[in-house]
Amino acid sequence: MAITKSNIPPKAQKLPPGVYTPVISLYKPTKTQELDLDAMYKHAQYLVRGGMHGLVYQGTNGEAVLLTREERIQALKTARRAVTDLGVPEYPIVAGISAESTNTSIELAKDAAEAGASFALLLPPSYWTKAISEEALHKFFRDVADESPLPLVLYNFPQVTPGQDLTSDDLIALAQHPNIVATKLTCANVGKAIRVTSKFTPEQFTVFGGSSDFLFPTLEAGGSGCVAALGNVFPKSTSKLYDLWVAGEKEQARALQDVVANAEWACKKGVVLTKFGAGHFVGPKIGVKAEAFHPRRPYLPPAEKAQKWTVDIMGVLLDEEEKIPDKTFGVNGAK
């Protein structure tokens, strides 16, 4: 018995496979917490040197809802400058364009393209959930895709969109659009991923997991990678898991998956602990003070007990991270 594959043509632009970091926003230690673009530049280069295959800005971990339109533009321009200065000007940068209205999402997509982003990431609308029928939901994504200068990645994260959970039927229907190229499944539903990958090749529509704690099963299910908050803290280990799997070193990849899954548990508690972990483990390495990693008000840094717990949980990856060398770059990119 076989599943009939879709016959839609390959997409003009495919989201490259691999592990992406949903990059956190860093702030100056002032009352209004302006973006610390210098710190974000350093962090971006640290992630790329750490082996990340792409960066995602203005997603949930980027605190997108707390940023102004101008701040979004500044952050994306800084990221593009950071990768260009490393010698990889075509490095994939995905920009979150999620908004409650179709018009605003289109505006953000155009802003992101002008600022140097490569792809756009979009959540379902969720302000009036009872008014969002299947027809309205599909029309929202298609209308944005029609006008977006960037290829669209569907972002499914039911925890932040109350009542809105893109089903495999939704994804399969929306994948027919020529400018909808991929999905990020933070719902962690591997069954959903399998149903979608059973219908499409990665050239037609690409499936990514929403965290690294189920990267191995995502890849085994036909997915192309993941977007992992843990990458903000341990980019080398999370990207290595993917690289091992691609190289056919599945036994090593499976063993590393166990450790990565345990370390990412802290990220599951929310962006506050993810940012603290990055400040603790990464801040000293890139010369950025811990205050830059504080969440934006009204959210507060974690209490001392939560800080200790985060260090203990994430720390299981420290030895692995330290023994992996940085990637080096030249005029023609990675070496």
Rank of each mutant, 00 (worst) to 15 (best):
A131N: 09
I132Q: 01
S133L: 08
E135K: 14
E135M: 12
A136G: 04
A136H: 11
L137V: 02
H138Q: 06
K139E: 13
K139S: 12
F141I: 05
R142G: 05
D143W: 03
V144P: 00
A145N: 04
A145W: 06
E147A: 15
E147W: 11
P149D: 11
L150S: 06
L150T: 04
P151L: 15
L152K: 08
L154E: 03
V160H: 08
V160P: 02
T161F: 00
T161V: 12
P162W: 04
G163L: 01
Q164M: 14
L166E: 03
L166M: 13
T167A: 03
T167M: 01
S168I: 05
S168D: 12
D169R: 14
A175T: 06
I180E: 05
A182R: 01
A182F: 03
A182L: 05
T183Q: 08
L185Q: 11
T186K: 00
A188I: 04
N189T: 13
N189C: 14
N189A: 15
V190P: 00
G191F: 06
G191W: 06
K192V: 06
A193Q: 06
A193Y: 07
R195Y: 06
T197A: 12
S198Y: 06
K199G: 09
F200S: 02
F200E: 01
T201S: 11
P202D: 10
E203F: 09
E203G: 12
Q204C: 07
F205D: 03
T206Q: 13
V207W: 01
V207S: 03
G209L: 04
G210R: 00
G210A: 06
G210C: 03
S212M: 08
S212T: 10
D213C: 13
F214S: 05
F214H: 14
L215G: 10
F216V: 12
P217I: 03
T218L: 13
L219T: 10
E220L: 15
A221G: 10
A221D: 02
G222I: 07
G223L: 09
G225F: 04
A228D: 02
A229V: 05
A229I: 05
N232H: 09
N232F: 05
V233G: 01
V233H: 00
F234M: 14
P235W: 07
K236F: 05
T238G: 11
K240P: 02
L241R: 10
L241P: 10
L241K: 10
L241I: 15
Y242G: 07
D243S: 14
V246R: 14
V246C: 13
A247M: 09
A247N: 07
A247H: 08
G248V: 02
G248F: 04
E249C: 02
Q252S: 15
R254S: 14
A255H: 09
L256V: 12
L256Q: 12
L256W: 11
Q257A: 12
D258I: 15
D258Y: 15
V259N: 07
N262D: 15
E264W: 00
W265Y: 14
W265R: 14
A266V: 12
A266Q: 08
